[in-house]
Simulated assay, not measured.
Amino acid sequence: MIRAETIRDRHEAFEAADTITLDETQRHRRRMAMVSDNGIAFLLDLSGARLLREGDGVVLDDGRVVKVVAKPEPLYAVRGQNAAHLLTLAWHLGNRHQAAQILSDHILIRREPVIREMLQGLRAIVEEVDAPFDPEGGAYGHHSHGDEARSLTAAHSHHG
């Protein structure tokens, strides 16, 4: 079976032989048999578990690269009344250990009615959306983001 032991970062240039469309849970892997969108079967065999990001390339041992596509999932887009309110909402979500993708004007989270009710009680605007989900890696994760998203840890460390 074809093996894949290396991931090309999404910011590197590469030519993709195919794509593989996976939701966020399916993209968090270390070792698993996979099949690309057009039928290339391979064994993902990484040294450690990691979250494959939209645009990353899975390098097959025959030299081909399969580009990762994030499958849209049912999510909530959470918006605040203003930037400070959005940060407060982000704090409440983090306090409840919710996986979250932080964007400049909203937060994406998995749909969960109890959390929606809490957010609406805090005057958040909560909209159901279907979108790719690329959550923050957490304080000890090895995920980095571009200008569109920032970790809350970085936002809180610059208040002095």
Rank of each mutant, 00 (worst) to 15 (best):
S104N: 13
G80F: 05
D105Y: 01
A99Q: 10
V114I: 01
E73W: 09
D105L: 00
A77N: 02
R96C: 05
A99R: 13
A124E: 05
V78E: 03
I115M: 14
V69I: 15
A70K: 07
Q101F: 08
H92A: 12
A70H: 08
I125W: 00
N95I: 00
L86T: 08
H106E: 13
E73Q: 15
D105W: 00
E117L: 10
Q120C: 04
Q120G: 00
S104I: 07
D105H: 08
I107C: 04
H106N: 13
A131S: 13
I125N: 10
E128H: 04
E117T: 14
V126P: 04
A83D: 14
E117W: 02
E117K: 14
A83I: 10
L122V: 04
V69R: 15
R116V: 01
P74S: 15
L93E: 04
A77L: 12
D105A: 04
V78L: 05
V66I: 15
A83N: 11
K71D: 04
I115K: 01
Q81E: 10
R96S: 08
L103M: 15
Q101W: 07
E117Y: 05
N82F: 10
D105E: 12
T88L: 12
L75A: 10
V69Q: 12
A84T: 14
A99N: 06
R96L: 11
V114P: 00
H85K: 02
L108D: 07
N95H: 07
H85Q: 01
L119R: 08
V68E: 08
E128M: 03
A84Y: 06
I109D: 06
W91D: 10
E117P: 00
E112P: 01
E73F: 06
P113V: 07
A131P: 02
Q81Y: 00
V114W: 00
H85T: 03
A70N: 04
V126I: 05
V66K: 09
K71Y: 02
K67A: 15
H92K: 05
Y76S: 06
H106R: 15
R116G: 05
V129F: 01
E117V: 08
A124I: 03
A83K: 14
P72H: 09
A77Y: 01
A100S: 11
P113M: 09
V68L: 11
Y76E: 04
S104Y: 14
A131Y: 10
L87C: 01
I102G: 05
D130Q: 13
T88M: 08
V78S: 04
A90S: 11
G80Q: 04
A131I: 03
V68D: 06
